[in-house]
Amino acid sequence: MDDRKPIVIVKDLNYRYDRDWVLKNIQLTVNKGDFLAIVGPNGSGKSTLLKLILGLLKIQQGEILLFGEPLERFRHWEKVGFVSQKANAFNKAFPATVFEVVRSGLTKRNGLFKPYPKTTVKKVIEALKAVQMEEFLYRNIGELSGGQQQRVFIARALIGDPELLILDEPTVGIDTKRVSAFYELMQKLNREKGITLIIVTHDTGIISKKVSHVACLNKHLYFHGNSSEFEQFDQKELSSFYGHEVKILTHDHQEGGME
């Protein structure tokens, strides 16, 4: 039973920018080992919810518990890995190697003010191996393709051995052929390393085959359940939730997207 302990609990959460509510009465629990996909149209509050969970925005109403602790008191950020939506929008001319970028994931690990320990190189290589990018160790980050950069940022999040990994629209800018490979990598991390995953995505056509749970958010939480329950959520209901007609496009090998 202990294995299913809650990692994230969101209670009665409301949030607004100026006068516009972007999140209303959100209740959500993510248990250890879950692979949760949060889907919803643009402006539905998905990224805001992630920012609130990550402590990047201040809670206005409601409560968030991380690893059982209220967010305001939570200090063990090394347990949380994050791959931002903006990760691919970094300054491409920044002259950093893949090694330097991945290593920066350990910035706070042995103390912010202490130099990196000697074991760092080994840890960087291990993290890069997990995303099949070890041969790019000393390449400049700006020279890599969007998909390769995304893997480097995942390695940066993995190097700190997080128990919870949060990814904000990680497949944006990655070609469709690579999307399936990306989800397989996530499944591997989820199953083999036992990492709890929360992913914000538009890949509605593929997620039910890849994740364990789905949450549909459009200011309110319309649906939260396991992926087989989500499959029952028919096209009509999905269209009504998105506010416009939605067609699930399923490609070969269950790759999918949304129109």
Partner: peptide, 12 residues
Amino acid sequence: SFDEEHGRTMGL
């Protein structure tokens, strides 16, 4: 310098 938002999520 490289990614301020990521730094803040790490509690920097």
